[in-house]
């Protein structure tokens, strides 16, 4: 049965609906502001501390790049390390380096399933996985950003510097790496080399007495990233 005031003046019901709509819009706006201010609400998404992002994005736009929804992705990049023990050197390789570059957001994100690394001797692989405790820490990861200017559309090989967090064996450290970036058709090729001191990541060099794996190993990556629509992510 209608309320008493509705029976007296049916037009009041219309005004009541308008009032409800305004209240809901205000509520929605409040929640939107709340959501924007709390990026941690998204599981698995971390806001990267990136002081260069604003300047990069501004300079990128200022260089008349069209606003693009392209992100560059690889799932079969090449990663390898070279390590040594006294009188012997060995190399581990993987073609399962996975990563992306988002030039709009100045975000670089790569990871490698460590169990995809093979040294050529099954027994040594097993020991390596144990040393890296891959059951607990299956991935080596880098998440960062370009710290200098970069033009993904430029021809030729560009020297680039990236900064970010590198994680392996459950230990995360801030690192800065020098590498190259080159456009190949629609794709982007990136390469980088650096020296990784495994003791920085609480990895005990395997071996017996003085016959131990050297603390420092040379790491090299080479990946061709192909464009993909942001909406496909």
């Amino acid at each position: 049965m209608p309320a008493r005031w509705e029976r007296i003046h049916p037009g009041l019901n219309f005004h009541r609906n308008i009032l409800k709509l305004v209240v809901q819009l205000k509520l929605c706006l409040s929640v939107l502001i709340l959501v924007i201010s709390l990026p941690g609400l998204y599981p698995g998404v971390e806001k990267i501390e990136n002081p260069a992002q604003e300047t990069f994005t501004a300079s990128y736009a200022a260089e008349t790049h069209p606003v693009t929804d392209l992100i560059y992705i690889t799932e079969n990049g090449h990663a390898e390390f070279t390590s040594s023990v006294p009188l012997h050197t060995f190399t581990g390789v993987s073609d399962y380096l996975t990563g992306m570059i988002d030039f709009e957001e100045n975000l670089i994100d790569f990871y490698l399933d460590l169990e995809s690394l093979k040294t050529g001797i099954s027994r040594r692989d097993r020991d390596m996985y144990r040393t890296l405790q891959v059951d607990e820490h299956p991935f080596a990861e880098f998440t960062g950003f370009f710290s200098g200017s970069v033009d993904p559309d430029a021809g030729g090989i560009q020297s680039v510097t990236v900064e970010g967090e590198f994680t392996i064996h459950g230990v995360t450290r801030e690192i800065s790496l020098d590498g190259t970036l080159e456009r190949e058709g629609d794709s982007i090729r990136i390469t980088a080399e650096w020296i990784l001191d495994i003791t920085d990541y609480n990895i005990e060099p395997p071996g017996i007495l003085i016959y131990r794996v050297r603390d420092e190993m040379d790491v090299r990556i080479d990946a061709l990233l192909e464009p993909r629509e942001r909406g496909e992510m």
């Binding site: 998404v45 993987s94 996975t98």
Partner: peptide
């Protein structure tokens, strides 16, 4: 309900890849 709608309408601008085992 309003909160859910707002969450759906708002996309994160910066996201890492989801970690998946290679093999």
């Amino acid at each position: 309900a309003t909160l859910l709608i707002c969450l759906l309408l708002t996309e994160p601008s910066t996201a890492q890849l989801e970690r998946e085992r290679a093999l």
